[in-house]
């Protein structure tokens, strides 16, 4: 059984007179131990998808209007608030992009790591603090003995992100959701942290949902990839499928438009024309159609559904662009 099954998820935001369909019919599974990457441009609904899984959507203006999110078979959307509380920071951990806003500035990092252990494991504070030290060592923080009593502002950006990871790992979660966990960090520090995250998930046999727009990171760390565009999944498959045999025109466009470090050529990039749509006003039919060179009449009228093109590889597009 999949660890997480997201089925037909719709999360919308309501403002005067307009509805932003941030997530509009998204389905995917996460298997135990796998790393699933969610990629897509800014505003395509990646973070809203992640926040929906933990029921962190601010209401109003947001609402999960339809769908199911099954974790170990149980629908999170049907759970009581207490049950969801018990999942967060326990069986499911979330690591955000900006550690400074998600860490408490007036609590030592030791206390912050110890808190979920106290809460979910009913451990006494001194025990929990001991475990916090062990966790700080695990995330390779030098002088972890002293660092437990540091405050967030006394740490570098990379160290704060390590603390976030240590907090996330405190209760040995089954699922870690990392939303752009390293974009604010330097290249070499980013590599250290992603390697660490991967090592920890391997050790604990946990699954990882990695949200990023960095296709290099995806190529290195993901087993499978979900490509989102305007609140919908346009393609889904193994990392090799998506990079080597992309089927959806948006995915193909994305692959052609990025310069690649392993290809030292001066050839012109092939950009995707136009700009992503306003989610309060998504084009009829296929949301990509105004930017798509393959679009036919049907694309402007009917919304394509996610259909298999090979085992485990799906695309939502009316045209067979590879033949």
């Amino acid at each position: 059984m999949a660890l997480l099954e997201v089925k037909n998820l719709h999360t919308h935001f309501f403002a005067e007179g307009s509805v932003v369909k941030a997530v509009d019919g998204v389905s995917f599974d996460v298997e135990p131990g796998e790393t699933l990457a969610i990629v897509g441009e800014s505003g395509s609904g990646k973070s809203v998808t992640a926040m929906s899984i933990l029921r962190l959507i601010p209401n109003p203006p947001g609402e999960i209007v339809d769908g199911e999110i099954r974790f170990e078979g149980q629908d999170i959307l049907e759970m009581t608030d207490e049950q969801v509380q018990d999942l967060r920071g326990n069986k499911i951990a979330m690591i955000f992009q900006e550690p400074m806003t998600s860490l408490n500035p007036v609590l030592t990092v030791g206390r912050q790591i110890a808190e979920p252990i106290e809460l979910h494991r009913q451990a006494p504070l001194d025990k929990a603090l001991e475990m916090a030290k062990v966790l700080l060592r695990k995330v390779h923080i030098a002088e972890h003995d002293k660092r437990v009593s540091s405050y967030p502002h006394q740490l570098s950006g990379g160290m704060r992100q390590r603390v976030m990871i240590a907090m996330g790992m405190a209760c040995e979660p089954k699922l870690i959701i990392a939303d752009e966990p390293t974009t604010a960090l330097d290249v070499t520090v980013q590599a250290q942290l992603l390697e660490l995250l991967k090592e920890l998930t391997r050790e604990g046999h946990s699954s990882l949902i990695l949200i990023t727009h960095d296709l290099g990171v995806v190529a290195r760390y993901a087993d499978r990839i979900v490509v989102m565009y305007a609140g919908r999944i346009v393609e889904q498959g193994t990392a090799r499928d998506i990079f080597e045999r992309p089927h959806h025109p948006y995915t193909i466009g994305l692959m052609n438009s990025i310069p690649k470090l392993d290809q030292d050529t001066k050839e012109k990039l092939i950009p995707i024309p136009g700009a992503p749509p306003d989610l309060a006003n998504v084009p009829e039919g296929c949301a990509f159609n105004p930017r798509c060179e393959f679009a036919v009449e049907k694309c402007r009228q009917q919304r394509p559904t996610l259909e298999p093109v090979a085992v485990g590889h799906y695309k939502a597009c009316w045209v067979d662009v590879r033949s």
Partner: peptide, 24 residues
Amino acid sequence: LLEAVPVANPALEAERAHRIIEGE
């Protein structure tokens, strides 16, 4: 720096050495 940057190519990434320098 060049070793730390992941390359958008899963086949290549699977074979690459990932020596990562410590510290900030």
